Simulated assay, not measured.
Amino acid sequence: MRKILVIGCMLLFGASLQAQEGLNVGINLGLPVGDASDFSSFSLGIDANYLWNVAESLDVGVATGFTNAFGKTYEILGAEFDAEDVQFIPIAAAGRYHVTDKFRAGADIGYAIGLNDGNDGGFYYRPILAYGFNDTMEVNFSYTGISLDGFTWSTISLGFMVNL
């Protein structure tokens, strides 16, 4: 089932790259929370989505990106250890509801592919609140959760997106 979801999302995203309408790209800076804060100090990511307007106030589409969470040094019984960086590529369905002309709320839901050793990835969800400065630029605040074996990798992020 996981492979079918990943392949389906990749096909949708690949098909959307042929058109330019609704393509958004951006960057984000995140702080790990919960279990993730034990191993990582901060994360940097790039985001891309393609959204289609399906109703007056509703956009739906596909989203992907890349996130690198930088490992931190921690101490156990007097010995210092460096945690490895953790990387993910999410592939997700995306939805955005226009609450007002400037304010949007939405979510991305899908699967995050783990890239580093021992990281199998997991179910990915990302609620997002965004404020649009104009038709091409927005700032957003999001929570990212990735359900892994035994715990959830979570971050809160501040991002900047540009509509191409």
Results as ranks from 00 to 15, higher is better:
residue 124 Y to E: 00
residue 85 D to W: 13
residue 1 M to Y: 14
residue 119 N to R: 02
residue 11 L to P: 02
residue 34 G to S: 14
residue 113 I to L: 06
residue 119 N to K: 03
residue 63 A to N: 10
residue 116 N to F: 15
residue 33 V to C: 03
residue 113 I to S: 04
residue 59 D to Y: 11
residue 23 L to M: 03
residue 103 F to I: 04
residue 26 G to R: 06
residue 37 S to E: 03
residue 93 A to F: 14
residue 12 L to D: 13
residue 36 A to F: 14
residue 32 P to C: 09
residue 49 N to E: 10
residue 117 D to Q: 09
residue 8 G to N: 05
residue 59 D to L: 00
residue 69 A to I: 00
residue 85 D to R: 10
residue 113 I to K: 06
residue 14 G to N: 07
residue 144 T to N: 12
residue 124 Y to Q: 06
residue 100 T to P: 06
residue 141 F to C: 12
residue 20 Q to H: 15
residue 130 A to S: 14
residue 24 N to H: 13
residue 13 F to T: 03
residue 47 D to M: 13
residue 148 L to E: 13
residue 135 D to N: 05
residue 164 L to C: 12
residue 126 R to G: 07
residue 152 T to I: 05
residue 149 D to M: 13
residue 142 S to T: 02
residue 46 I to S: 12
residue 156 I to Y: 14
residue 91 I to E: 01
residue 39 F to H: 08
residue 138 E to P: 00
residue 80 E to L: 11
residue 21 E to A: 04
residue 139 V to C: 04
residue 74 Y to L: 03
residue 140 N to S: 06
residue 140 N to C: 03
residue 105 A to D: 11
residue 134 N to T: 01
residue 150 G to P: 04
residue 12 L to F: 01
residue 100 T to I: 01
residue 108 D to G: 03
residue 92 A to T: 00
residue 25 V to T: 14
residue 154 S to M: 06
residue 161 M to L: 09
residue 158 L to V: 10
residue 81 F to T: 02
